[in-house]
Design a binder for these strands. Structure first.
Length: 429
DNA sequence: TCTGGGGTCCTAGGACCC
DNA sequence: TCTGGGGTCCTAGGACCC
């Protein structure tokens, strides 16, 4: 007997988070912007209905937004992260095996729940999450992850489903597959869509019936896996305990273009600090460090982009040491005269810290360095990120990303607790 | 004025080994 | 005259995800 898999997906997650704490926004169009207030990364249903596309730069929709009173927000990841955590905690009450797949999605293994009416069960999940967090979710249920994602999509699209679609034991499953375009299948992106369309494969149903050999040749085993999943054969396993990351990236575009090497260095030091913190959090050490910088590819100015990979002879998790090597990298690739718009750092070749090989003859006093790092982490956790930092990251932070329309951290900062009177006012309207 | 950030996996090809 | 076969590891690049 097959195992039912559910995927719970928050509707328009970022937009919904903003709405929870500002009930006046109910029924109003909302969009949320990417970092640096660059483009649209989330839209409420009302904003979608206005024809505002995903990924559109803000300046291109300014007119529509003004005309229709669209509410525009900078993204507020502290808020979204906390809301996500609340939703996931609730989901864990509905299945012992929950895989948190992204900030707004989770797979639930419903093995053992087969005797229940799964559609009813998922309606209950939906109701409780909405009641306890204010976030609306949709649920798709099927025998494979790919089919569950597809069911979820249809649940969201067709309002008659009430946010839940269960495809288990549906003899008419093909009629659902025919309603989903191939580019909307999980695992099929832009490039493969082009290729598939060229070969007259337009729907999930067409893809399900494609020839194995051809798919394997053109789309590798990943594509074949997708096809099998559409046929109801599970190929994508559950992953309950997130394994440590194999690479950690920290990068950002600047709020303005930056010319000076010193500013670039400060920004890179700042990103090294953040990446190293993340790395220590998962108890890894890096053997490779890459720094990169680039000019704005959307501008008609001289272009330059370059990266520099530093192999670290001794694996390290020390911010100070990583900054040291990163600065050497910057010296190598920085060219004067360009207007830089984005820089970043990647830590890779990560290994568990406790397995890190110490060299026989080492010039650094590692024990001492570990103590300093440990203490800095402690202070920053206790008293807030950025309380104590290396001078290399600078204090002016003139390169800082724009976020001009950010809402308060309602749930993670005592100073920003929402006030009940706002809710009353909204109810009276 | 103005276009995100952070990940994963697979494959081909080169270097190197015996 | 003439120069193997099989394996591993690493990297870059390309696809995908949210």
């Amino acid at each position: 007997m097959s195992i039912p898999i559910a995927i719970v997906d928050c509707n328009n997650f970022y937009a919904s988070c903003e709405r929870v704490f500002n009930p006046k926004l109910n029924g109003k169009p909302i969009v949320v912007l990417s970092n640096n207030d660059g483009m649209i990364i989330a839209r409420s249903d009302e904003a979608k209905a206005l024809g505002i596309p995903m990924g559109e730069p803000l300046f291109k929709i300014k007119d529509i937004a003004e005309k229709n009173g669209v509410h525009i927000f900078s993204s507020n990841y502290s808020l979204y992260g906390d809301m996500s955590h609340r939703v996931m905690t609730i989901l864990e009450q509905f299945s012992p095996d929950v895989e948190i797949y992204s900030i707004d999605e989770a797979f639930l293994n419903l093995d053992g729940f087969q005797r229940l009416d799964l559609t009813e069960y998922c309606r209950k999940i939906r109701k409780i999450v909405k009641q306890w967090t204010g976030i609306p979710v949709s649920v798709g249920v099927a025998e494979t992850k790919t089919l569950a994602k597809l069911a979820n999509r249809l649940a969201k699209k067709d309002k008659t489903n009430n946010g839940v679609l269960n495809l288990i034991d549906r003899p008419d499953i093909d009629s659902f597959l025919k309603r989903v375009a191939v580019e909307d299948v999980w695992g099929v992106g832009r490039q493969y869509t082009k290729l598939l369309n060229l070969h007259n494969i337009f729907t999930a149903y067409d893809l399900k019936n494609a020839k194995d050999k051809w798919i394997r040749e053109k789309m590798t085993v990943m594509g074949l896996r997708t096809v099998f999943e559409l046929r109801g054969i599970p190929c994508v396993n559950f992953d309950y305990t997130p394994s440590p990351k194999k690479a950690i990236i920290s990068s950002r575009s600047f709020g303005r273009s930056v010319k000076e090497k010193n500013e670039i260095k400060e920004a890179i030091s700042f990103f090294v600090t953040r990446a190293a913190e993340k790395m220590r959090h998962q108890k890894s050490a890096a053997t490779l460090l890459t720094v990169f910088l680039r000019t704005n590819p959307f501008k008609n100015t001289p272009q330059y982009h370059n990266g520099c990979l530093v192999k670290l002879s001794v694996p390290t998790d020390s911010t100070a040491e990583l900054i040291h090597f990163a600065m050497k990298g910057v010296e190598q690739i920085y060219r004067a005269g360009f207007l830089y718009y984005k820089v970043g750092v990647m830590l890779a070749g990560l290994i568990p810290y406790n397995r890190a090989q110490l060299p026989l003859f080492d010039t650094e006093n590692r024990l001492k360095m570990d103590k300093i790092t440990e203490m800095m982490d402690l202070i920053n956790i206790e008293m807030g990120t950025g309380t104590i930092f290396y001078a290399a990251t600078g204090i002016s932070r003139g390169w800082k990303t724009r976020a001009e329309r950010r809402t308060p951290n309602y749930t993670t900062d005592w100073e920003n607790l929402p006030e009940i009177k706002d809710f009353y006012e909204a109810m009276e309207e």
